[in-house]
Design a protein around this nucleic acid. Sequence first.
DNA 1: ACCCGCGACGACAACGTTGTCAAGTCGTTG
DNA 2: CAACGACTTGACAACGTTGTCGTCGCGGGT
Lengths: 354, 354
Amino acid sequence: MTGHSLNRRPGIKDVAASAGVSIKTVSRVVNAEEAVHPETRARVIQAIQTLGYVPNTAARSLKSGTNGSIGIVIDSLADPFFAALVSAIETRALAEGLSVLVASSNLDSDREREQLLSLVAGHQVAGVIFAPVADEHPYLDPFRTTTPVVAVDRSRAGFDCVVVDDRGATALAVQQLVELGHERIAFFDRDERFSTIHRRLDGYLDVLRDAGLPYDPELVSSTVDGSLDYLSEAQRLLGLERPATAFFASNAKAAIGLTTALHRIHRQNTAMIAFGDFAFADVLRPGVSCIDQDPFLIGNAAIERLLALREGPKNDPREWIVPTALLLRGSGEIPAPPDATSHAHISTTEGQLA
Amino acid sequence: MTGHSLNRRPGIKDVAASAGVSIKTVSRVVNAEEAVHPETRARVIQAIQTLGYVPNTAARSLKSGTNGSIGIVIDSLADPFFAALVSAIETRALAEGLSVLVASSNLDSDREREQLLSLVAGHQVAGVIFAPVADEHPYLDPFRTTTPVVAVDRSRAGFDCVVVDDRGATALAVQQLVELGHERIAFFDRDERFSTIHRRLDGYLDVLRDAGLPYDPELVSSTVDGSLDYLSEAQRLLGLERPATAFFASNAKAAIGLTTALHRIHRQNTAMIAFGDFAFADVLRPGVSCIDQDPFLIGNAAIERLLALREGPKNDPREWIVPTALLLRGSGEIPAPPDATSHAHISTTEGQLA
DNA sequence: ACCCGCGACGACAACGTTGTCAAGTCGTTG
DNA sequence: CAACGACTTGACAACGTTGTCGTCGCGGGT
């Protein structure tokens, strides 16, 4: 019993013994270092293959201080937007020989903290991409010097951020509605928890102001406790004395809920534009017009930036704006009913135009 | 310069020094072992918090031989079904204090092998859940004694598998169509690469046989090189001498493609049932009837089984069948046009029943 | 007074790998 | 022939943690 191969996983030592070299040489071969005689290299590779040796990641990262994987923290994988985003990152990471550790924050900032620390301090990941929940992340400071961090979807000061121009894209969409004569445009799902939504609301307000339309809080539906009854809310808005004639859904959930609701009450011929594309938006009658925020573009930009940070010393963090597209599919082009608001609009805010 | 706290991450040694105990005692506290005096424990915890100590996962798993995370290999995260499945697993894993390493196979068995080995041998994960691609996975054998493995979505001999009853569920759906008088039922996306699809085709054939209907290969559309032009294929089927009067989509991609195609040519009033629920299936007109295969149920069952395998010695692997539901939403209940096939059907395969 | 047992704790090796540094082997040059 | 450099290789420590085993102090039974 010379304690050989059977029943224990082969380690670098076994390979070394089998190839008749030292463990260091095996290490060199595994890490594709130059200084190894081709013949020796061949012998080692041979040994690796017959033994089925796979280097131990734990030992490796213990020595090097950095794990060969990147950490991701997003709201939830059940959200198709984030799932696609992670998918894009994973694809690129694989090409780089990096694994992906994924965790969800569930929009809870305590959980976000826990997960981020586990990744950065515990697993010592080579980098982190996350969709920030809390406003501040001071606990990441000690790691910032060694671990590159990129924020996605929601912007945060101090981090490289990959986001879309929420305010501008929203403005463009709402502008489209205004140009078709809509004066009563409902905004769905104001939600104080998300700065993203905040900016979209700002874009909405920008257009109203520039068009000289009054801002009516009654037209803005708020999510309470993360949920909203789209059906009754839609009915309320359509039943106002001066009813809403167009809808803007500021997120995918609202888009789905609203679309479903409008179809259910057979009012699908109401003008509507949604922030975020979704499956079947173009199959419905009429097609739901959307602001397309491509998760693959965002994911790619984020991982690309992360990889860049791994190399060069990081200059000041900045915001990376990924372009969006306004996909008009019918629902956004439905003009306001001529009689919607029969009295002429009197602009009282002239001077405010740029 | 006594080389203290600043600029280096605190290790167990720093905590020990700060609390005036040995590193072993800190280890005991971190691992919640009994034999520690409450007072000492408090002192250590205090030190841990002030220093912001987080144990190093790499060193931990190097010693213990097992990483505190579970590995997942699925087709692609961009597929909402798998994304939801991973989400369910991740949620449960978190509760167990386990992280999630996720990789995609992209349906490539070489890549599957690479990823599985990286997880099992490289990262030494505490367990693996994967959607098998290859028929055999002999390279996993050396690890089976120490690492629990659970297959999902597609069944494989030798593994605990969490799947749905593809054949039975399909049969139920096709039966529904047959009962409404359909005799020309198209089957979409025969794909040799997936045993899942194979079994669904079997279910389809079961019903035809039991109903005494002839099997017409012209009604079965095959995916070539992973893609299919649903529009022209649908038109071909509807243009046959004896046209298809109902469609069965054996996977979500086919369902989406087919639905889009039928809408585009304004034939959405064709009977149709899809395997796999998808967003908006109930918003379309008519609603698309679906066999609902709940990814959360599957994910939960898989992780639950995995956790069980971590404990007890594993008895023989078995198949765990997760129930499906036939969601009738309109499209599946559209009867066959009375004149579709005007000649009476003559059963010549009587004896085969039961 | 003695011994034994038990609870609390620490010294030290070990996990598998890589970085550091030194040593060996050549062929080439002065 | 000695000296040198280029190339190839190996011995050994170290990464941060946990397992093993030993030590210490104290209380109770004889």
